[in-house]
Amino acid sequence: MGKVLLSLHVLAAIVFIGPVTVAVSVFPRYARATSDHSVEVVALLHRISRVYAVLGLSVPVLGIALAAHLGVLGDAWVVASLVLTIAAALVLAVVILPAQDRLMGPPAEPSAVATRLATASRLSTASGLFSLLWAVVVVLMVVRPGSTTGV
């Protein structure tokens, strides 16, 4: 059962978190663009971000199940990973997705362009932070500092 959970956990991380990472990092570039084409791209990227963010919830759930199965749920590297995962999820749910929502639709009148660019800029920073948090969690998962399990 541990090997099945581990496979599903890694597979879910690749298939669900990967698209979110790409979509949120590319989103600001198309939100700054002004062509009709970019409106459609922005809508698709927003949809990918939202749908795969929900599906991505399966990654920590499978991870917790696996950690409980292995009896390492209280280990420092697992707890640290969980805290960073919650931080990444909050950045996505509280900062990135609402900001994307505000940048949906065609660009407003010229007076709103500055606000739009500022939001897109903040979105770039938040996207970078999201990716960084996930990268640190992946490194923790591989290195597992202080762990003696050979799985």
Binding site: M1, L5, R50, A53, V54, L55, L57, S58, V61, L62, I64, A65, H69, A93, L97
Partner: peptide, 25 residues
């Protein structure tokens, strides 16, 4: 049966979180 527990446990956990996430989106 432990297999049912370890299969449906994560399914329930994911469904619970997904329900909350969808409602907030």
């Amino acid at each position: 049966h432990p297999l049912v527990t370890s299969t449906m446990g994560p399914v329930h956990g994911f469904a619970y979180l997904a329900t909350i996430a969808v409602a907030f989106l």
